[in-house]
């Protein structure tokens, strides 16, 4: 499979930024596109490798069934709320949805 030298368009960069929830200005998009394409061009190098019939290595060693007993611990909630930027009582405040 041959892909164009610069796989990502500015439109695609903007779409990715939306998916990743990263605000990008128009200038950012242009700059980002240049950087991304440079690196993606380099990544294309892996096309040279024939991986037909090869399984992916998601886990490097063959551990299976690592399980935990269903025994509750008392929750450690106190310190966890210390880092919350916006609270209302014990609720974590989030922006409006719509």
């Amino acid at each position: 499979m041959k892909t164009p030298k610069h796989p990502i368009s500015e439109k695609e960069v903007s779409h990715l930024a939306e998916l990743a929830r990263l605000e990008l200005s128009g200038k950012d998009v242009t700059e980002m596109r240049l950087h991304l394409n440079k690196i993606l061009d380099y990544f294309k190098m892996i096309d040279e490798v024939d991986t037909e019939g090869i399984s992916p290595t998601y886990h490097v060693f063959d551990l299976v069934n690592v399980l935990r007993d269903d025994t509750p611990h008392s929750p450690e909630s106190k310190d966890l709320l210390e880092n919350v930027p916006k609270k209302k009582g014990r609720y974590i405040k989030a922006p409006r949805m719509i």
Partner: peptide, 27 residues
């Protein structure tokens, strides 16, 4: 930049070409 690239290599249509292929090369 890395988040953008990682979002791209996992996204629909590119997963096999990048992420999956890289994991096979890992093998």
């Amino acid at each position: 930049q890395r988040i953008m690239l990682g979002t791209y290599t996992l996204s629909a249509g590119y997963f096999d070409q990048y992420y999956l292929k890289a994991q096979k090369i890992r093998t």
